[in-house]
Protein backbone atom coordinates (compact mmCIF):
# COMPACT_ATOMS: atom_id res chain seq x y z
CA UNK A 1 0.00 0.00 0.00
CA UNK A 2 1.47 3.30 -1.12
CA UNK A 3 0.36 5.09 2.01
CA UNK A 4 2.43 2.80 4.23
CA UNK A 5 5.59 3.03 2.21
CA UNK A 6 8.72 3.45 4.35
CA UNK A 7 10.74 6.59 3.90
CA UNK A 8 14.15 7.91 4.83
CA UNK A 9 14.86 11.56 5.60
CA UNK A 10 16.20 11.79 2.05
CA UNK A 11 13.15 10.40 0.28
CA UNK A 12 10.58 12.05 2.58
CA UNK A 13 8.71 14.67 0.48
CA UNK A 14 8.96 18.34 1.28
CA UNK A 15 5.29 18.79 2.17
CA UNK A 16 4.32 15.32 3.40
CA UNK A 17 0.92 16.57 4.52
CA UNK A 18 0.02 17.33 0.92
CA UNK A 19 1.91 14.58 -0.90
CA UNK A 20 -1.17 12.44 -1.58
CA UNK A 21 -4.56 13.46 -3.00
CA UNK A 22 -6.11 12.42 0.31
CA UNK A 23 -3.69 14.69 2.14
CA UNK A 24 -4.41 17.57 -0.22
CA UNK A 25 -8.14 17.14 0.26
CA UNK A 26 -7.81 17.01 4.03
CA UNK A 27 -5.57 20.06 4.04
CA UNK A 28 -8.02 22.15 2.03
CA UNK A 29 -11.10 20.77 3.76
CA UNK A 30 -9.66 21.53 7.15
CA UNK A 31 -8.93 25.12 6.20
CA UNK A 32 -12.55 25.46 5.13
CA UNK A 33 -13.63 23.92 8.41
CA UNK A 34 -11.54 26.50 10.26
CA UNK A 35 -13.27 29.17 8.17
CA UNK A 36 -16.59 27.93 9.51
CA UNK A 37 -15.17 27.81 13.03
CA UNK A 38 -14.09 31.42 12.65
CA UNK A 39 -17.67 32.42 11.93
CA UNK A 40 -18.80 30.34 14.90
CA UNK A 41 -16.46 32.16 17.26
CA UNK A 42 -17.26 35.51 15.64
CA UNK A 43 -20.91 34.86 16.51
CA UNK A 44 -19.97 34.02 20.08
CA UNK A 45 -17.84 37.17 20.37
CA UNK A 46 -20.71 39.26 19.03
CA UNK A 47 -23.04 37.75 21.60
CA UNK A 48 -20.55 38.36 24.37
CA UNK A 49 -20.06 42.00 23.40
CA UNK A 50 -23.83 42.50 23.22
CA UNK A 51 -24.39 40.98 26.65
CA UNK A 52 -21.24 42.12 28.44
CA UNK A 53 -22.02 43.44 31.93
CA UNK A 54 -25.68 42.87 31.24
CA UNK A 55 -26.83 41.65 34.65
CA UNK A 56 -30.24 41.66 36.34
CA UNK A 57 -29.19 43.73 39.37
CA UNK A 58 -26.20 45.63 40.78
CA UNK A 59 -25.37 42.85 43.21
CA UNK A 60 -23.98 40.79 40.33
CA UNK A 61 -20.29 41.01 39.52
CA UNK A 62 -19.29 42.74 36.30
CA UNK A 63 -16.28 42.27 34.08
CA UNK A 64 -14.20 44.91 35.85
CA UNK A 65 -14.75 43.18 39.20
CA UNK A 66 -13.88 39.71 37.97
CA UNK A 67 -10.79 39.65 35.84
CA UNK A 68 -7.24 39.77 37.14
CA UNK A 69 -4.28 40.05 34.86
CA UNK A 70 -1.71 37.67 36.46
CA UNK A 71 -3.68 34.46 35.98
CA UNK A 72 -4.84 35.33 32.48
CA UNK A 73 -1.32 36.37 31.55
CA UNK A 74 -0.01 33.01 32.73
CA UNK A 75 -2.67 31.21 30.68
CA UNK A 76 -1.82 33.27 27.61
CA UNK A 77 1.86 32.46 27.96
CA UNK A 78 1.15 28.75 28.37
CA UNK A 79 -1.02 28.60 25.29
CA UNK A 80 1.19 30.79 23.09
CA UNK A 81 4.22 28.72 24.04
CA UNK A 82 2.35 25.52 23.29
CA UNK A 83 1.61 26.88 19.83
CA UNK A 84 5.33 27.48 19.32
CA UNK A 85 6.21 23.96 20.48
CA UNK A 86 3.68 22.51 18.05
CA UNK A 87 5.48 24.44 15.29
CA UNK A 88 8.71 22.76 16.37
CA UNK A 89 6.93 19.41 16.24
CA UNK A 90 5.80 20.07 12.67
CA UNK A 91 9.31 21.18 11.77
CA UNK A 92 10.58 17.79 12.84
CA UNK A 93 7.68 16.06 11.13
CA UNK A 94 8.74 17.65 7.86
CA UNK A 95 12.32 16.49 8.52
CA UNK A 96 11.16 12.94 9.19
CA UNK A 97 12.46 12.84 12.73
CA UNK A 98 9.60 11.13 14.44
CA UNK A 99 11.07 10.97 17.94
CA UNK A 100 11.67 14.69 18.15
CA UNK A 101 8.23 15.37 16.82
CA UNK A 102 6.73 13.20 19.55
CA UNK A 103 8.80 14.98 22.17
CA UNK A 104 7.66 18.41 21.10
CA UNK A 105 4.07 17.24 20.85
CA UNK A 106 4.39 15.92 24.38
CA UNK A 107 5.56 19.33 25.58
CA UNK A 108 2.64 20.89 23.70
CA UNK A 109 0.21 18.62 25.49
CA UNK A 110 1.73 19.38 28.91
CA UNK A 111 1.45 23.13 28.28
CA UNK A 112 -2.11 22.68 27.04
CA UNK A 113 -3.01 20.75 30.19
CA UNK A 114 -1.47 23.55 32.25
CA UNK A 115 -3.68 26.04 30.46
CA UNK A 116 -6.70 23.89 31.06
CA UNK A 117 -5.93 23.56 34.78
CA UNK A 118 -5.69 27.36 35.08
CA UNK A 119 -9.00 27.76 33.26
CA UNK A 120 -10.76 25.30 35.53
CA UNK A 121 -9.37 27.11 38.56
CA UNK A 122 -10.46 30.43 37.04
CA UNK A 123 -14.05 29.28 36.54
CA UNK A 124 -14.10 27.76 40.01
CA UNK A 125 -12.88 31.04 41.46
CA UNK A 126 -15.50 33.16 39.68
CA UNK A 127 -18.19 30.75 40.68
CA UNK A 128 -17.40 30.68 44.38
CA UNK A 129 -15.87 34.08 45.07
CA UNK A 130 -18.20 36.16 42.90
CA UNK A 131 -21.27 33.98 42.45
CA UNK A 132 -20.65 34.56 38.73
CA UNK A 133 -22.50 31.62 37.19
CA UNK A 134 -23.70 30.36 33.85
CA UNK A 135 -27.25 30.67 35.13
CA UNK A 136 -26.94 33.88 37.14
CA UNK A 137 -27.08 36.48 34.36
CA UNK A 138 -26.96 36.95 30.60
CA UNK A 139 -23.41 38.22 31.09
CA UNK A 140 -22.49 34.98 32.86
CA UNK A 141 -24.12 32.87 30.15
CA UNK A 142 -22.28 34.73 27.38
CA UNK A 143 -18.94 34.66 29.21
CA UNK A 144 -18.97 30.96 30.05
CA UNK A 145 -20.25 30.05 26.59
CA UNK A 146 -17.53 31.96 24.74
CA UNK A 147 -14.63 30.98 26.99
CA UNK A 148 -16.11 27.52 27.55
CA UNK A 149 -16.40 26.83 23.83
CA UNK A 150 -12.75 27.71 23.56
CA UNK A 151 -11.97 25.47 26.52
CA UNK A 152 -13.93 22.67 24.87
CA UNK A 153 -11.82 23.12 21.77
CA UNK A 154 -8.69 22.84 23.91
CA UNK A 155 -9.95 19.58 25.40
CA UNK A 156 -10.78 18.21 21.95
CA UNK A 157 -7.43 19.32 20.53
CA UNK A 158 -5.51 17.73 23.40
CA UNK A 159 -7.43 14.46 23.08
CA UNK A 160 -6.79 14.46 19.37
CA UNK A 161 -3.03 15.03 19.69
CA UNK A 162 -2.73 12.42 22.46
CA UNK A 163 -4.69 9.87 20.40
CA UNK A 164 -2.41 10.45 17.41
CA UNK A 165 0.75 10.18 19.53
CA UNK A 166 -0.34 6.88 21.09
CA UNK A 167 -1.70 5.41 17.86
CA UNK A 168 1.47 6.09 15.89
CA UNK A 169 4.02 5.63 18.70
CA UNK A 170 5.29 2.35 17.31
CA UNK A 171 5.10 2.83 13.57
CA UNK A 172 6.56 6.25 12.97
CA UNK A 173 5.69 8.56 10.13
CA UNK A 174 4.18 7.77 6.76
CA UNK A 175 2.14 9.62 4.21
CA UNK A 176 -1.07 8.32 5.80
CA UNK A 177 -0.55 9.82 9.23
CA UNK A 178 1.51 12.90 8.32
CA UNK A 179 -1.62 14.86 7.26
CA UNK A 180 -3.27 13.86 10.53
CA UNK A 181 -0.47 15.29 12.63
CA UNK A 182 -0.38 18.38 10.48
CA UNK A 183 -4.12 19.03 10.81
CA UNK A 184 -4.05 18.51 14.57
CA UNK A 185 -1.34 21.15 14.82
CA UNK A 186 -3.32 23.46 12.54
CA UNK A 187 -6.28 23.05 14.86
CA UNK A 188 -4.05 23.83 17.80
CA UNK A 189 -2.90 27.07 16.15
CA UNK A 190 -6.48 28.04 15.52
CA UNK A 191 -7.30 27.55 19.19
CA UNK A 192 -4.38 29.79 19.99
CA UNK A 193 -5.54 32.52 17.63
CA UNK A 194 -9.01 32.45 19.18
CA UNK A 195 -7.43 32.80 22.61
CA UNK A 196 -5.55 35.92 21.50
CA UNK A 197 -8.90 37.48 20.69
CA UNK A 198 -10.45 36.28 23.94
CA UNK A 199 -7.53 37.73 25.85
CA UNK A 200 -8.02 41.08 24.12
CA UNK A 201 -11.77 41.34 23.88
CA UNK A 202 -12.82 39.63 27.09
CA UNK A 203 -10.00 40.24 29.54
CA UNK A 204 -8.13 43.40 28.47
CA UNK A 205 -11.24 45.26 27.37
CA UNK A 206 -13.03 43.89 30.41
CA UNK A 207 -10.50 45.39 32.79
CA UNK A 208 -10.34 48.85 31.25
CA UNK A 209 -14.05 49.35 31.10
Amino acid sequence: MAAEQKFTPQTWPESPEQATLEGKNKFLGFWFFLGGETVLFASLFATYLALKDSVPSDTHAKAADLFELPLVFLMTMLLLTSSLTSVFAMYHMKNYSFKKMQQWLFITVVLGLGFLACEIYEFYHYYHAFEHKFTSSAFGSAFYTLVGFHGGHVVFGLSWIIALMIRNAKRGLNLYNAPKFYLASLYWHFIDVVWVFIFTVVYLMGMVG
Binding site: L51, P56, A138, S141, T145
Partner: peptide, 22 residues
Amino acid sequence: LFMLIFDRMFGSGFFDVAMGGN
Protein backbone atom coordinates in the same frame (compact mmCIF):
# COMPACT_ATOMS: atom_id res chain seq x y z
CA LEU B 1 -29.47 27.04 18.39
CA PHE B 2 -26.92 26.39 21.13
CA MET B 3 -28.10 29.50 22.93
CA LEU B 4 -31.72 28.42 22.55
CA ILE B 5 -30.82 24.95 23.87
CA PHE B 6 -28.92 26.47 26.80
CA ASP B 7 -31.73 28.90 27.60
CA ARG B 8 -34.45 26.29 27.50
CA MET B 9 -32.67 23.30 28.98
CA PHE B 10 -29.68 24.51 30.98
CA GLY B 11 -30.88 27.69 32.64
CA SER B 12 -28.83 30.36 30.84
CA GLY B 13 -30.20 33.81 30.04
CA PHE B 14 -29.19 34.85 26.53
CA PHE B 15 -32.69 35.78 25.44
CA ASP B 16 -34.24 36.22 28.87
CA VAL B 17 -34.67 39.95 29.45
CA ALA B 18 -35.14 39.42 33.20
CA MET B 19 -31.59 38.07 33.36
CA GLY B 20 -30.18 40.89 31.23
CA GLY B 21 -30.57 38.97 28.00
CA ASN B 22 -31.63 40.29 24.62
